[in-house]
Amino acid sequence: MLAPNDPYATNSSLIRQAPSAAYLFGTDNLGRCVLSRVLVGARTTIASTFFLVAVSFLIGIIIGMLCGFYGGIVDDILMRVADLMLAFPQMVVAIAVAGILGGGLGGAMIALGITMWTSFARLARSHTLSIKNEPYITAARLQGKSGLQIMMTHIMPNILEPVLINALTQIGTTMIGISGLSFLGLGVVAPQAEWGSMISEARAYIQIAPWAVLFPAAATVITIVVFNYLGDAVMEYRKAE
């Protein structure tokens, strides 16, 4: 809606045009409006990042609560799986998985999500362990509440805040991950507009048309910085409280 031009319309007479009043961010190698592609790419990059973080958060917090609350063999197995995931750098695992799954945004999200839930699960588990022996949990058990009810009504609300703040700080990393995989050709594929794939496409002619790399790169950096600051600010606010 905000894009001034069709982000997918090619025009051979407008190839690699420098930024001007008509095309504020210039045009790319196929004459497409870079500003429109950056704006449409924001939707792809930010929406997929939010979706991925939300799904990983949900899976992680549920697994973490179950492990922390019930313990036992399920906890042992799931936490060893998490250890295994954390033993490798996230991007290395993501590249390997995305390579196996082939290109596409879905594949990139699965590749990143495979390791991302572990940090939420670990955090949720440690917070669950620290509160599960609180007297109010014992009181709830004596009031006849089942394990599931206690997890939903007492544990979840009390561990939500720190895990949610962790999710905020993960947004920047996830965005780098999605853009990185797209840059490597393992994420979003052309012609779909996405910041990482735009940088990847335009780097071939960076010396002739640097704006085609500069603007999506700047958008990526600014967005990551904003979300990191947001995470830090919320964390500071919580500490001050």
């Binding site: 609180e134 014992t138 009181a139 058990r141 004596l142 009031q143 006849g144 509440k145 009390n158």
Partner: peptide, 30 residues
């Protein structure tokens, strides 16, 4: 028997009165 069952005939009053209530809940809910 687990506390979920024993709670039908006995209740506990704790040393840590504050800790025996969920800090996120108001008293009515608790």
């Amino acid at each position: 028997s687990k506390p979920e069952k024993t709670g039908k005939f006995l209740q506990m009053i704790f040393q840590d009165a504050y800790g025996s209530f969920d800090p996120k809940m108001n008293m009515e809910k608790s």
